[in-house]
Design a protein around this nucleic acid. Sequence first.
DNA 1: ATTTATGCAAATAGTTTGCACACGT
DNA 2: ACGTGTGCAAACTATTTGCATAAAT
Lengths: 144, 144
Amino acid sequence: MSEKTMDLRRVGLKVTHPRLQILRLLEQTDPERKHLTADEIYRLLNEQGEEIGLATVYRVLSQFEQACLVRKHMFDDGSGRPMQACYELHDGDHHDHMVCLETGDVIEFVDEEIEERQREIANRHGYDIVEHSLVIYVKPKKSA
Amino acid sequence: MSEKTMDLRRVGLKVTHPRLQILRLLEQTDPERKHLTADEIYRLLNEQGEEIGLATVYRVLSQFEQACLVRKHMFDDGSGRPMQACYELHDGDHHDHMVCLETGDVIEFVDEEIEERQREIANRHGYDIVEHSLVIYVKPKKSA
DNA sequence: ATTTATGCAAATAGTTTGCACACGT
DNA sequence: ACGTGTGCAAACTATTTGCATAAAT
């Protein structure tokens, strides 16, 4: 029994073809390209001959999100075009994101100093942090 | 001639009633409540007897955004409900946001240490920062 | 056999746009 | 008068939902 099958069982979801395929896709994609929109997932799967409806993709992703199998992000690329949610496999660890506006690459990072300062700021104002989201939008450095 | 009128002239927009009213609203609201959605602006203005269409509110806000008179944010309150853009007057200075999930209050802050670390991280990966967005989602501390 | 998933099409929510009229300059 | 801006209604996009069928346990 595959690992994916167990993942699904563990979170109480039936092991169906669409769910396995979506998991597979999210696992396969390479590091800088593993943040996919619902539509990308839909398109990629159908290109590979898997006939899976867009509604199913959305439903499955939102179930996965609730089950903490995936994380959902809203990267506002600032560029005005309509914003789409994108999803990545949930690896357990928290990390922030750096999005390259030219290539669309997404680099993940963690900086303990930044994390600490955030806690301090929240604390100073009498709050506890529930969550936070840090996205740095970047462009490749023009090396002279 | 009012300050608002000059703001509009300066960015090349005609001085119209809807634009003045929207500016006024954004200026008047108190610090923790000055991040308004298009719909809130529409509703507030109409409650005050200003008959301004929702489409106009959207159009004006997006013109203001391009003119750097306002900033647009997408606060994903995590809670699953549909996400709406919200707008605040652009004061020139950059700042990050802390959103209270219980009251909806928005606290602004800047931390030079965090800013610096971000530059460092981008730099280390060969990127220049174009922009960044840091939102801390918090809940009031339960004081024992 | 029973429960849960799926696909399709229709619904929804936020936002945008076309067009005829009204307003600012 | 001229060029913009506005309001309304209709269009659009991302996402969700109702329902009849199909698949998983």
